[in-house]
Design a protein around this nucleic acid. Structure first.
Lengths: 209, 209
DNA sequence: CTATGGACCTTTGCATACAATTGTGGTGAG
DNA sequence: CTCACCACAATTGTATGCAAAGGTCCATAG
């Protein structure tokens, strides 16, 4: 997309997702524009996009970083439990060998990091995100690519891995590995079952810690 | 929202949904701006929003009305089959008596129209939409209200009722009536089961006619 | 006759200026 | 002392102008 508009979009989004912009805080066009060395025009577009993604909400004129209630998070996980297994199943039908390689590499980096004495969680988070995004792309479905990001691009979800202890991180990696096997076997039922368990466990960790 | 921006958004959206702007046709900022008696700036915002809703797609610079493939429509129905029963179940838990009345009234108008010699389909479409929207609102869930409209605000879906013949319209009404019973009984399983059948049947009609 | 290059034209991207709206703080009346 | 109202300040909304990027079409060479 356009240079300045894209810069502004990524800047705001990153700051929301990593918590720099706290939930509930006001997002001023002028501030972002200044930070991105651009004018308000592309910033406004970026804000509109993020509004559509529900990362930003509006009260009359002003924009704020959205706050997510616990009830909303329950709905998010309920929907992910429906949609993500479907994604895994579709990916099992349609994935290309190159994408499987990408998944495998993501798991290898994850594994290597986890083997270290003090793993850097942000590396694991990145590889985890890459894994799930690659899976989504592999479905080749515009509809899924429209829906799922709205369920996982929630400030808390990508960070929920940080709540995992080491055994939980190991378990999650095992599930990723098994998912790769299911995809290679082109077995939709197997893939979606693994994913169901994977999300279930994520939900437990999220609500019980 | 803003006056001009909202006008532009609704204008484009309406034209896409009712087919005035044909799928695949180019959407030019200047044209819309002129039609809405405004400048390009608010039009650009409207286009960005619709892009986020996947009603508009972009190729390099230009914007076009999105075309929905059959594969996409299959995904839409697959997801509706997951989400709408969940909506019905949540509504059964949380719906207020006044909302039940709204649903009942919608069904009554539907029924009266259907009893006529030559029913006006657009009346039935309106009441059908009202029914499903009321159900969605009754869940009180921001997340559901963010997700579901993206699955049904697809050019073809709101119009799919037009493919129903009279017995199918009668069957759909019966299902609405039974859904009201399930909601009054506050029985989530019953409600979601009815909805599952309802969407299943909609899918059959959609793909077999 | 086809293919390639280039000028031109169409459309969008960005910045700036100004208008409008909303929040806020202070002042005066009760 | 409190409440209401008015004025001003802070932000956003809209318009316009110009820059840049892509696409198109014609001319010319092979």
């Amino acid at each position: 997309m356009s240079k300045a508009g894209e810069r502004a979009y990524n800047a705001i989004r990153d700051q929301i997702l990593d918590g720099t912009l706290a939930p509930g805080s006001q997002v001023r066009e002028e501030d972002i524009a200044h930070a991105c060395a651009t004018s308000r025009t592309p910033v406004r577009e970026a804000i509109r996009r993020l509004e559509g993604e529900k990362l930003i909400e509006r009260d009359r004129q002003r924009s704020y970083v959205r706050v997510w209630s616990e009830a909303a998070m329950r709905d998010v996980f309920a929907l992910r439990l429906m949609v993500e297994p479907y994604v895994a199943g579709q990916a099992a039908r349609l994935i290309q060998p190159e994408s499987v390689d990408v998944l495998r590499r993501a798991n290898d980096i994850y594994r290597r990091e986890l083997a270290m004495a003090r793993p850097d969680i942000s590396v694991i988070v990145t590889q985890n995100n890459l894994f799930h995004e690659t899976l989504l792309d592999a479905t080749g479905s515009d509809v899924l690519q429209m829906i799922l990001p709205r369920l996982i691009a929630v400030p808390i979800v990508p960070l929920s891995l940080r709540r995992y202890d080491r055994p939980q991180l190991e378990k999650a990696l095992e599930e990723h590995d098994e998912l790769v096997m299911a995809l290679e076997a082109r077995d939709p039922e197997w893939a979606s079952m693994i994913m169901t368990g994977h999300i279930h466990r994520a939900r437990r960790v999220f609500f019980e810690t």
